[in-house]
Design a protein around this nucleic acid. Structure first.
Lengths: 203, 203, 203, 203
DNA sequence: CATGAATGAGGGTTCATTCAT
DNA sequence: AATGAATGAACCCTCATTCAT
């Protein structure tokens, strides 16, 4: 998994159109992967919850792997678009960073959004070949937005760490929130973002 | 995994004596879990690498689950002892924190034999019943050392965040390093610890 | 397969008209059966090569079995007609036999003619019920031509074996040529026919 | 199958020891392949007839393919030894040829062992890689015995055809007997051998 | 303690066939 | 006629676990 940083420059990947049937399968598959993990989820489980028979799954995806990959790719793409949208036209890089963190947090914590979780947790279940494709996708929009924002802060001397290192520390800090934050707890996502912000950014 | 914080107060758990044969099996099992994950590791893989036949495994452990559980429990216990040892007699809480982070980092990166990554990565592969036991163990010594250290820093006004929140942010930041740090990279574990230290601790 | 000789006397069988669409499907199916065998050929393979979708196949044939049967029946019929044409008006039974052998050989070796091959090789893939129909067809014209010719030679004392036995030995010898003759080899089909002729027929 | 003649010079192939359990599985597998063909025989069929469960098969063979291959290899080896034994010390090449033909015929028709049948009929079901191994084995002893015998007859001017061609014609004639000879028919294997003998050999 | 054959449930996947559109 | 999603049984194979030796 250390190749997580070794990415190429431009995105790629067809992904193909996602029909309603495919979308439904993806949705239940993601839920199941979230609940039980990829390995422990059987294609029969997925089919049953999608209301079809297991054989029918393979009409839409040619393997269980492809289901995982497609879910991850779609999530990556959606997160990229959200990140771009969140930072577009935001002048202050501090505000841009807050927006990016909020976007990442809400992807992770959104009720219907087990997808972001699966993206991280099932990385090891993904074939070598598919990983590269996801990494390319991720680097295309999502990580570029982060990079630009952190670089701007760094250039202004407002970051306590090197921007590359800051990115990784923040990412880990946010991702882990999955394990301890509670909806009914005292801390909401915006407060958490502020908390992290004041830790990493001066002033 | 959000129950990771909901722990009882006192440790418990027999674990039983660990014979040399058991230790050998545990060591190779941990290696394998690290390489392929729990689900993708077969008992035959473990037995083969341990130099025995698969049937013989079950004279030492009554199930594959028990191997995972025992590995996790032993790791947890060892980490607790290491944390206590690392902080004992250290006057400056800043230094104590650095020691705790270094211990956690080296366990995560398998520089010692503690295999902390299994604790995080294979948490979901552990049966419900075994999870509670591990959580109890973990809370016993390990987390207490962290708590005491961070509380001391907080009381001295040297922490940028609430100690409870700081613990979680740091834990996430450190755990994620597994995904991006490279042995041959420019950053070593000690430098990473310093990097995190200066982010979270004033001065 | 020993029932190969237990045939009734007269032909029968509708077979129905073969539309151009059907003919195309049969052609590609035969090629596929030849290349991969009946069992390993999927209806999707056939449909794809025929330029249609698998569901559409079943508008022309009611099952995969029927495709095999129809191909075999058509081949059998064509070979029968060729045999009759080849021997009609040939006075010398030795010449008639040469003509029959050449017809059989060229059916087997003809470039577009995997059909004769399939007829032999996929016999076991044919349902019991369909086999009888093919055998009847075969007995109708094709085998009668052979029988008449060999009987004539036998009556003239020019055969080294009983005509019935000779037929089977010759058939085996010719069929096996599939496995060892090469287009670019030193032996052509006519020479092979002569070779067999001089072995079985005196003078 | 045209590569059936393109063989290298020397045998090879470990095959490994054949335990009683393996032998039993091979025996029933061969019967089944004979009755239904390789593709139509399921591993559960084999296991059931062998009196074990399907999973246990894979203790002895790592795949269904390997069962086929092992059966073919064992048969080939046995036939080679039989051919050598049958011709050893036989002075008259005519008698040697009769012995070889009888050996081939009884392998094809042997009541207790359909293995030689499978060797021919399921050739296409064998993986490319395994075919080469079988061909090598076959050429080692079996075909050499045939070649030597026919060459001797040819050198003495007692063959109606070139020895190489004669081998192929005879092989086809004998193999085909499987399709028309009946146990209860008027012709036994020895008579059939004589019949072929007088066709191909002068005097 | 170790062996290794056997278990048997269950895994992912294939595929001929059906049928509403 | 053609489509293509859906079916559902069957396929080969895997694997944690048991147990007689």
């Amino acid at each position: 998994m250390s190749e997580a940083l070794a990415t190429a420059d431009l995105p790629a990947l067809p992904l193909g159109p996602i029909s309603p049937a495919k979308a439904r399968i993806l949705a239940v598959a993601v839920d199941l992967f979230y609940e039980r993990g990829y390995e422990r989820t059987t294609v029969r489980d997925i089919a049953e919850r999608a209301g079809i028979l297991s054989g029918s799954l393979f009409h839409h995806f040619k393997s269980k792997q492809e289901i995982l990959y497609t879910a991850m790719a779609a999530t990556t793409q959606a997160m990229g678009e959200a990140a771009v949208a969140a930072t577009e036209g935001v002048g202050d890089p501090r505000e841009a960073l807050r927006a990016l963190m909020l976007a990442e947090l809400s992807a992770i914590h959104r009720e219907d959004g087990h997808a972001a979780y699966v993206l991280v947790d099932e990385w090891r279940s993904l074939d070598e070949e598919h990983r590269a494709a996801i990494l390319k996708l991720r680097d295309g929009a999502y990580e570029r937005a982060w990079r630009d924002t952190l670089d701007a802060l760094g250039a202004a001397g407002r970051l306590r760490n090197n921007p590359r290192i800051a990115r990784q520390l923040i990412r880990g800090a946010l991702a882990w929130s999955r394990h301890w934050m509670r909806e009914d707890g005292p801390l909401d996502l915006a407060s958490l973002a502020d908390e992290v912000l004041k830790t990493f950014v001066r002033d």
